[in-house]
Structures are given as C-alpha cells and as structure tokens.
Amino acid sequence: MDLPEPTPAPGEHRNQALSAIVIRLFAAISITAMFACVKLASDRGVHVLESVFYRQLAGIIVLIPIALAGPGLAALRTERPWAHVSRMVIGMVAMSLNFLSFALLPIAEATAIGFMVPIVATLLSIVLLKEAVGVHRWSAIAAGLAGVLIVVQPGDGHIPMLGAIVSLTGVAVTAFVSIIIRKLGETENPITTMFWFSLSSMVPLGIAMLFVGQMHDAHTWGIIALMGLFGAFAQLGITWSLRLAPVSVVLPMDYSSLIWAALFGYLIWDKWPVPATWIGAPLIIGSGLYIALRENRLAKLRDQATARS
C-alpha cells in the first residue's frame, strides 16, 4: 500500500516560489545576453544561420542532461515524428527571423517588439483554434498593438523599417509556433518537443552551413561560444523554474529582459532606448502579461469544472 506524499509546509511553497522566480530571472538575463551575443557576432560578420546552428547545437547538449536528471531518456521518444518536423520547419523560420531582427535593430527595441508574441498568439488562437475571446482580452490586444505603434513609430525613422518588418514577421511566426507547441503538448513532454526541435533542425542547418559556415578569429569564436552557453542557460532556467512554480508566478520575470537589453545596449553599443520605447513597451508588456495570466486563470477554471463533472 502506497503512503500519501507529505504535504509541503507553507514555508516550503514560499521557498520554492522564490527559487523559481530567481531562476526565471536568471533565464531572462541569459536569453538577453544570448541575443546580445547574436548581435555582436553579426557585427563581426557571422551569418544569422551560423548563429542559429550553434544555438541549436547547444540546445541538444543541454537537453540530454536535463532528460537524464528528470524523466530519463525515454522521455525523448516520440510517436509523432512528422509533427515535430513541421514544428521544426516553422520554428527555424521563426528563430532565423528573430536572430536577424536583433542584428538589424537596437537590442532594446527588438526585445520590446518581441513581447508581442502572446498577443499575436491570442489573435491566431481566435482564427485557428476558434477560441472565444472576451472584451478583456480584446482590450489587452488593442493596448499591445498601440504599444508597438509607439515603439516602431512608422515613418519616423528612429529605427530601421526593414528591421521592424523582420521583427514583426518573426513575432507572427513565433506566435504560430506557440499554437503548434500547444497542440503537440496534448501528447508530448515539453522536453521531447524541445529536443526534437533542436535535433531535427541539424539537418537543414547542417546543409546551410556548407554555404554560410566560415572560419572566425578567436574573439568571434568566443562570442559564438558564449551565445550557445547563454542560450543553454536560458533553456535550462525556463524548464527548471516551471518545475518549481506555475507559469503565473514566474512569467513576470520574463519582462525584465527589457531592463537587461537596455543595459547591454548602453554598455556595449552606447545606445540608450529612445523615450518612445519606454512609453510603448509597458503597454506591450502589460497587455501580454494580462493575456497570459488570464488564460492561466481560465485554464484552472476549466480544470476545476472538469474535475467536478
């Protein structure tokens, strides 16, 4: 007869939540540092597809120990290989566009526009998944779109229009990827999805490297190595934080990326975000955070209703 597991004391819950927040904050810093390295590498002539290749290679290296420490290598098996291939193709387009946006735009502005993903994902869920969205989320979507217009300021010229278009396209494709991941999540472990994304992407990226791969000086290789390392840290931190606390607890830490991006932009490129970014970014962050937390609350209510029925 199995004995019930002891219920954690309130203090243990608080300690776990605090640990999750600190780890997620570390992940936010790491992912911002990764994009700073992408931009630095681009400045030194590294092709975007090279950066994506080394980022994915680092992902494979870090996910195997995560699987071994957690559910085991059996968790990496899948019965939906073609679904993962579809996710990989679209995910590669999204990642390449996102990396290119950081090469073309100031790091803070690229980060702010990237916060649009949950907003665009909500719009796509209405069209593709036929999800019902009420006035609250429609208002959040409108606020987020207004924030983007303030940050981008079409026609003003304070950021390159090509970079803005690439960044917004990357946001749209990334949001579409999130819909695919949501469907995959119905049967697949998150570690399985991440692992097969990284592994399967090695095929097209390996072919691309035959054309864009090149030798670099020691300094540039160091930047590439740091990019992969920070990307692995970010992936590990995101996964680990969600084991300790729910999304609603750790999600707000993701938006600290704008602070780190502003600091990196100033310290490395001597470029501080323009006032419009500080005005528009809170609208984007607030709307994305509201949508994510509201969806989390609605999911809990649906689970409770299912449990009662």
Rank of each mutant, 00 (worst) to 15 (best):
V89H: 12
H136C: 07
I107L: 15
R182Q: 02
F115I: 08
V93D: 07
E188S: 14
T169N: 02
K130A: 15
T169A: 11
L128A: 12
G91L: 07
R137D: 01
S139V: 14
G155V: 05
L73Q: 00
G147D: 06
I66P: 15
V135I: 08
G134P: 10
L145R: 00
P154C: 04
M88K: 01
I150L: 06
R87H: 13
V151D: 04
L128N: 07
W82V: 11
G163W: 01
R55D: 10
A132G: 13
I66Y: 14
K183P: 10
H136N: 09
S86G: 14
V151L: 06
A67H: 05
S125H: 03
I180T: 12
V117F: 09
V152E: 00
L73R: 02
I90E: 13
A164Q: 01
T111W: 15
K183Y: 13
V171P: 02
A75R: 04
R182C: 09
V173W: 04
L145C: 05
G163V: 03
A67Y: 13
P160A: 05
R55T: 14
A146D: 04
V135S: 08
L105T: 09
P154G: 06
D156T: 02
V152T: 11
V148C: 09
P106A: 11
I64Y: 08
F176Y: 14
G59H: 15
I66F: 12
G157C: 01
L105E: 10
G155W: 07
E186M: 06
S125R: 02
Q153P: 13
S96T: 11
G72Q: 03
I126Y: 09
E109Y: 12
A69R: 00
I181V: 15
F176I: 07
Y54H: 09
R77K: 06
H84S: 06
L162S: 04
P154D: 10
R87G: 03
E131A: 05
A121K: 00
M88V: 03
Y54Q: 06
V152N: 02
F115S: 02
V62R: 07
G114R: 02
V173C: 05
I90R: 07
V127N: 06
I179T: 01
S101T: 11
A143K: 04
T169W: 11
P81C: 00
R137A: 03
V62N: 15
I90V: 13
P118H: 01
G114F: 15
G144C: 04
A69S: 07
A67T: 06
A69Q: 03
A112P: 12
A74Y: 14
L162F: 09
